[in-house]
């Protein structure tokens, strides 16, 4: 009985990982790829680790696996956020069918600051045009 549970869990985990790697190959731009990896890989890794934890069924293995799963769940979303921010800073083009982009114009590329409103007119630009 325990074997069948392990089989089902590990099969689901491998299926999620395989689907997210197909997605990373087929999606058209960086942000969609980050989206895909963050979703499917968390539960895929979690289920694979959980199945091996069920196989050993010891306390020492269980604590290690719990720590790994919690760490993966916490860090994947943070890593995705950092990468998306860096990709937006380097002006990586978004897909041409993107519906609307409300982030455009909010970044200050000089000071790396993110404003909550778009400024009316940048004062440095005015000076340059006068000169």
């Amino acid at each position: 009985m325990k074997e069948y549970i392990i089989m089902i869990l590990s099969f689901l985990g491998a299926l999620f990982i395989l689907s997210s790697s197909i997605g990373i190959l087929r999606k058209p731009d960086v942000y969609l790829r980050i989206n895909i990896t963050g979703k499917a890989s968390t539960l895929g890794i979690g289920l694979l680790l959980l199945s091996s934890g069920l196989f050993f069924n010891e306390v020492s293995v269980g604590t290690r696996i719990t720590a790994t799963i919690i760490f993966v769940f916490l860090t994947i979303s943070i890593g995705g956020h950092m990468l998306a921010r860096a990709a937006y800073f380097t002006k990586t083009p978004t897909w041409e069918k993107t519906k609307l982009d409300e982030l455009a114009g909010h970044y200050d590329y000089e000071t790396h600051e993110l404003r909550s409103e778009i400024p009316r007119k940048a004062p440095e630009l005015n000076n340059e045009t006068k000169n």
Partner: peptide
């Protein structure tokens, strides 16, 4: 289907 890109400084 969602990813947080950034949070504004204020």
């Amino acid at each position: 289907g969602t990813v947080v890109i950034d949070i504004s400084d204020d």
